[in-house]
């Protein structure tokens, strides 16, 4: 077992993990952050996406020991008193159906907008290429991200 200290959604956790423990399993099973989910085993689907030290990462493809000393934001820690504009936009534009890809999709969108606050449709699509959705055909996801970009520019966040 290896000792790790990881800040998850603003709370410091010191835990013993097996080196083989995936960050996503650490989050779900040891920290109880079950909002982050697993969708594949080849790093393809992005359902497990979190922000690791502020940048999007697939938590199924990071070992918990690699995240030692880092800070993780999951879907459960994204909202403050109010929802993040990306969350609000996904609801407004019906950017989700079953919701399984949603936590990862939202966090990828947050990362995308932090790098490119004014993306074109093509840039939104390319920025989300690491996240698969089987329900929406991406149409309303793209609209959601465009709307979030607008609200965020408006100074709402």
């Amino acid at each position: 077992m290896t000792k790790v200290s990881i800040t998850v959604d603003g709370v410091l956790h010191e835990s013993e993990v097996e080196p083989r423990t995936l960050l996503v399993h650490y989050l779900r099973e040891q920290v109880g952050k079950v909002g982050t989910v697993v969708g594949c085993d080849t790093s393809s689907c992005g359902a497990c996406t979190i922000l690791l030290d502020g940048r999007s990462a697939k938590s199924c493809s990071v070992l918990a020991v690699q995240a030692d000393g880092s800070s993780v934001t999951t879907i459960e820690g994204l909202a403050g008193d109010e929802w993040h504009p990306v969350q609000a936009a996904f609801k407004e534009c019906h950017g989700l159906q079953c919701g399984y890809c949603t936590p990862g999709m939202v966090l990828s969108a947050v990362d995308l907008l932090s790098e490119n606050p004014n993306p074109s449709e093509a840039e939104i699509r390319e920025g989300l290429e690491g996240n698969l959705c089987r329900c929406t055909g991406y149409h309303n996801i793209v609209k959601s991200v465009a709307l979030a970009a607008q609200t965020m520019k408006g100074g709402k966040k």
């Binding site: 996406t49 940048r55 999007s56 990462a57 697939k58 493809s61 990828s108 990362d111 690491g130 996240n131």
Partner: peptide, 9 residues
């Protein structure tokens, strides 16, 4: 290369 998440890591 791959996608944004993978490029970050």
């Amino acid at each position: 290369v791959a996608d944004p998440q993978i490029r970050h890591r």
